[in-house]
Write a protein that binds this DNA or RNA. Structure first.
Lengths: 187, 187
DNA sequence: CTGTCTATGTAGTAACTGCTACATATTTTA
DNA sequence: TAAAATATGTAGCAGTTACTACATAGACAG
């Protein structure tokens, strides 16, 4: 029966997805081919396509693992109870998101965004969208209520600015990110 | 003589680069292979590698064409003499950069940034850096002097915010970009 | 113990990619 | 006009990729 078959392999699929997530976070989405992923997971490409229907299904599983790890890291980095005003939250968030441990996640995320429009891979698109929504929600929760009640707008601005800092950082322009953060403070 | 050889082909190289630029702007960097590029330029892959040493050199030429087109578009969109304060400049710039005619350029640019760290392609890296520097300079020139003299910092912040808006737009979240722009105004 | 189901290795295939060898047309030059 | 340089077509190579056909080992039920 197909259902039981799925259950039997579920554990193995999770193990394998976890180790493939490590590999992708280290080397990026573009360098992810079945043979390398299999080697990283300690198995063969033949077996990967035994556990998963095809590469698309496999990538969806791995990206889900990566997204879950990211939200977990964010949650332990800044507790949910804390609320901060715009400038402080942006600085604190940038200190977290712009740090080296989270860089691989951000890199994968940006690869996701730029690659999605090339082909109609709705799986990757949805993961990228989910990460954005996660970020947006997270920021809205942590942003101290602004007096003029434009809460959602300020949260969106914070998200945009954060993403822009990320982009500049990925382009190797840490000098500009530093200046920009100073610009926020002095504003 | 090698030098004369270069001169003879220079015209043809420019023509071909121009048409390949069209193709890349339409279909993206990832989908750019020699056969398709050749078809778009009305020639063969064999001839492309006759005009250019290898694909790297070819891509460098095409990216240069694209970068030049972008700066030209920016210059005619907003004349150099105008100087605006932060909020107004950001809005005006976003109206230009976030518009549909410039989207292909922004997409290619982001592909450049995310792909560069995968391999050590210094040609693409330098083009991406050049575009950033162009933007930064352009913003610095058009930004009305801020009272507290943190001119460079505010310009960097504007660049970051603009890039973030771009990222959200590419991720298909025009709703968030609209909100963020409102957030800028209300700040 | 025998046959069915699950798991895994071997060895491919077909498509795509950058690139090249070889032949040949076309133009230029001496 | 002969020879040399330039331009272009044909055909393919070698590497990579996702994916598969086939065989077969082991588990386990009857």
């Amino acid at each position: 029966m197909l259902h039981e078959f799925m259950k039997i392999n579920e554990k193995r699929r999770i193990e394998v997805s976890d180790r493939m997530a490590d590999h992708i976070l280290e080397y990026g989405l573009a360098a992810a081919n079945l043979r390398d992923l299999a080697a990283a997971a300690g198995t063969s490409d033949r077996m990967l396509l035994y556990y998963f229907k095809d590469k698309d299904e496999l990538m969806a599983a791995v990206l889900q693992v990566i997204a879950m790890r990211l939200t977990h890291l964010l949650n332990i980095a800044i507790p949910a109870s804390i609320k901060l005003p715009y400038k402080d939250l942006l600085q604190k968030l940038w200190a977290v998101v712009g740090s080296t441990p989270l860089k691989p996640f951000m890199h994968v995320w940006m690869e996701l965004i730029t690659s999605k429009s090339d082909n109609g891979q709705n799986t990757q698109t949805s993961v990228a969208a989910a990460i954005i929504d996660g970020f947006a929600l997270w920021i809205t929760d942590h942003l101290d209520q602004t007096p003029n009640a434009k809460h959602a707008e300020v949260a969106a601005l914070l998200l945009a600015t954060l993403d822009g800092l990320l982009l500049l950082d990925m382009a190797g322009r840490r000098d500009l990110t530093d200046k920009a953060v100073l610009g926020v403070i002095g504003q």
